[in-house]
Design a protein around this nucleic acid. Structure first.
Lengths: 180, 180
DNA sequence: GTCTATAAAAAGATAGAC
DNA sequence: GTCTATCTTTTTATAGAC
């Protein structure tokens, strides 16, 4: 497949940023075009409708999750610790795609909800060999979801209550002792 | 203070339901009026602006949290177990107000973000005496957030991966053994 | 590929009748 | 208190020039 045009990627980046920073309502085609520095007509050449724009975002998410699951499997510190630590978001492309997709899902977009369920299912499969039983698996995923949720809410607010540094070290150790 | 008029409550209920079921974008004043069976003018008598409607929802949330924190303190099974079990949502008024507020917060509404931080802070205070240390406290809150997040995403989707029944019993036991 | 111009519908809000 | 009518702005989308 050929390289995606620069303008197309700029629009998609802008749309993603609007979803993350200002929410679903603010993420209009007009605003995305302006933020990307193209005209509305220019945007509509690459994405014929709002749905096409949203679909493209979900495809970007799927590609990034592929890479993440591979990294998890080969992480030296173990899959559980890797998974929990990367659940504290630092604004990398996967973090951003996940928050954006969750904004769409909370707006009732059916494809976004399904995409997020698939992401969760892939993480579940990758983690299962590394935990004691299904309850332990549920615990790890729920702590990750909790970290994710607080990050998602805190994006534009004050620094959230997400543990970092030594507090994160201790949390990872506590969860690992419970699930191993 | 006097009883709130029936029509006012109907509009607020309808607005809340629209936020939960269809998301921020679908929760318009027009749609809320239609769903409540009043005209747009009728709605605007009770809520002079969209912001007033949103504010009323946050006040409803605050009142429901007052009651919840009281229940938590006197729960026979202990605060931690009560808190985790009630984090699996069953559609009671507090659950609904929380999801609706989170939809607003994800849309960038500043008051909603602040309201949710206050809710979390009140739960934190109520739980602190019942756990070993601050890391244990963080674990309990994160598991609750994870349960909440999955419920919030699953509202209109397929049955989410939220543990129920004996799986929930085992999860609560696992967390309690880690934090006590 | 990218633009301008424009249409059609929906959103928030005002004015005033009943 | 509740309604209809109307206005303004925004949002999605189309048409067609360059």
């Amino acid at each position: 497949m050929g390289r995606p045009p620069r303008a197309r990627e700029s629009v998609l980046d802008a749309f993603e940023r609007l979803l993350i920073d200002d929410g679903e309502r603010a993420a209009t085609m007009d605003a995305a075009a302006r933020a990307a520095g193209v005209s509305k007509g220019g945007l509509l050449y690459h994405f014929a409708s709002k749905d096409a724009l949203e679909q493209a975002l979900l495809e970007r998410l799927a590609a990034l999750v592929d890479a993440d699951v591979n990294d998890m499997a080969t992480a030296p510190e173990g899959a559980v610790a890797f998974f929990l630590r990367t659940s504290v978001m630092d604004g990398d492309p996967l973090d951003r795609a996940l928050i954006a997709a969750s904004r769409l899902a909370q707006g009732g977009h059916p494809g976004a909800g399904e995409a997020l369920r698939q992401v969760r299912s892939r993480w579940e499969q990758a983690l299962r060999p590394h935990v004691r039983d299904e309850i332990a698996l549920a615990l790890v995923l729920l702590v990750s979801d909790g970290l994710y949720f607080n990050n998602a809410l805190g994006v534009s607010g004050a620094a959230g209550p997400v543990p970092r540094g030594t507090a994160l070290d201790a949390l990872v150790a506590l969860v690992e002792s419970a699930v191993r």
